[in-house]
Amino acid sequence: MLALGDITAGYGETTVLREVSLWVPPASVVALLGANGAGKTTLLRVASGLCRPRSGTVRMDGADVTGHRPHVTARRGMCHIPEGRGVFPHLSVRENLAIHAAGGDADETVDRAVSAFPVLGSKLGQQAGALSGGQQQMLALSRAYLTDPCYVLLDEVSMGLAPVVVDEIFEFLTGLRRQGCALLLVEQYVTRALAVADYVYLLSRGRVEFAGEPGELDAEQLTARYLGTDHGN
């Protein structure tokens, strides 16, 4: 289990999160929802080690990893897909994928990525920065498939993408869950997130306002109150 306990964190003198506790059980999908500025991205950064909390603990399967650097949490099975399509734009698609081989068979790594996202197969020699937004996101997401993580943190992976690409990405996320990965999902498409989630946390001004199962929430009221128009309907 990924467990964040009483996390208080921020940047400089600004406090973003206030005593936030959240649990991600193995092989589950947890949706983390809230308005812009609620602290969702900061919470993912704390979980992966990109942001050290001022107080509170982060535990992975019982081990205290609070404040550990991202490469340490990654070795323990954490994969963080940040907002903004984290690829190396000046490297080719093949080179981006080979980085995740981690000393293994680069060709096998490429084959696995192409099996997950076939469109990448015809783009292997292209610079990653020349791909469409959806293709760049597929390339970024392939890391969650190639590194065999236990926990995957996903920050707005569907943002700005065409509906058909969003469908493909959610199909991929469902496949990850079937393989036993646990997902902590920050997502703008509220109804899509609720449809795949086992548990939901709602952040408001840096605090947890709701924690429970999706069926306990009214999606329309949630959208109107916290998130504005839900383009995923």
Results as ranks from 00 to 15, higher is better:
Leu185Met: 10
Arg85Ser: 07
Val208Gly: 03
Glu19Val: 05
Arg225Ile: 00
Gly133Ala: 06
Tyr189Val: 00
Gly215Thr: 06
Gly34Ala: 04
Pro70Met: 08
Thr8Val: 09
Gly180Phe: 10
Pro118Lys: 07
Ala38Pro: 13
Asn96Arg: 02
Gly125His: 12
Gly37Trp: 11
Val166Cys: 12
Leu22Glu: 12
Glu83Trp: 02
Tyr11Lys: 10
Ser21Gly: 15
Val110Pro: 07
Ala113Tyr: 06
Ser115Phe: 04
Val196Met: 14
Phe117Glu: 03
Pro118Gln: 06
Asp111Gly: 11
Ala63Val: 14
Glu168Thr: 07
Thr57Glu: 15
Arg69Ser: 14
Gly212Tyr: 12
Gly103Ser: 10
Phe172Met: 10
Ala27Gly: 09
Arg45Gln: 15
Leu161Glu: 08
Met159Glu: 15
Val24Ala: 13
Ala31Tyr: 08
Leu176Met: 15
Arg85Val: 03
Gly62Arg: 03
Gly103Asp: 11
Asp61Lys: 02
Gln126Asn: 07
Val165Trp: 13
Ser21Asn: 13
Glu95Trp: 05
Ala63Phe: 02
Leu176Asp: 03
Val93Arg: 01
Ala74Tyr: 09
Arg69Ile: 00
Glu213Thr: 14
Leu185Asp: 08
Gln127Tyr: 11
Leu97Arg: 03
Ser142Asp: 02
Ala182Ser: 13
Thr15Asp: 11
Thr57Lys: 11
Val87Glu: 01
Asp64Met: 03
Ala35Val: 04
His231Ala: 14
Leu194Gly: 00
Glu187Leu: 07
Ala3Asp: 15
